[in-house]
């Protein structure tokens, strides 16, 4: 079937199988930041935005995205870089395989939650698995990132 999806601002028209997953569609079109870590919608690695809301691209048919807008990490260069700075300064990316999905969700969380507590952050991101870091470094990076505009010298800058 023929579909038109706007990915990171650019229209992609394609003829796809009706059961093609958005994840496979995106990787096929070269958006390699989108990773697959499981087949059971558990890991959060394939998180992208559908009309600016985070979704698991492994659980979405690309046919259903016809006429919609998809954002991947490749499309969020500037915002992602700002957060990446804090992740890198904590060494919290480690293998980096789960980073793109996490970043997509952190940036979505920033838009959705006002001044989230540590508990709210953990709950929002509970679906983003990471086997390397034990999550502590990620939490440090996220907290510093969210507080980056609140004056004072940031620990990460030292």
């Amino acid at each position: 079937m023929k579909i038109n999806i706007r990915v990171n601002g650019k229209m992609i028209s394609d003829d796809v199988a009706c059961d093609m997953l958005l994840l496979d569609f995106l990787r096929y079109h070269g958006f390699y930041s989108v990773k697959r870590g499981c087949e059971t919608s558990n890991c959060g690695l394939c998180t992208v935005w559908l009309d600016n809301k985070p979704i698991l691209s492994c659980s979405m048919l690309c046919a259903k995205c016809d006429g919609h807008e998809i954002t991947t990490l490749e499309g969020l260069k500037k915002d992602a870089e700002a957060f990446a700075y804090f992740m890198a300064n904590e060494g919290a990316e480690q293998c980096g395989f789960c980073s793109p999905g996490l970043i997509m969700n952190v940036l979505a969380m920033e838009k959705e939650l006002q001044h989230p507590t540590e508990e709210m952050i953990k709950n929002y991101l509970a679906g983003n698995l990471c086997r390397c870091t034990g999550y502590m470094g990620q939490l440090r990076a996220i907290t510093k990132y969210l507080n980056r505009h609140q004056g004072g010298k940031n620990e990460a800058d030292q």
Partner: peptide, 22 residues
Amino acid sequence: KPTVKKDAYALLSGQPVFTEDL
């Protein structure tokens, strides 16, 4: 020192650096 990993920004910007990407 807390030196930033050399591959940090490639990984954090989702560059195609893993086996399947290549």
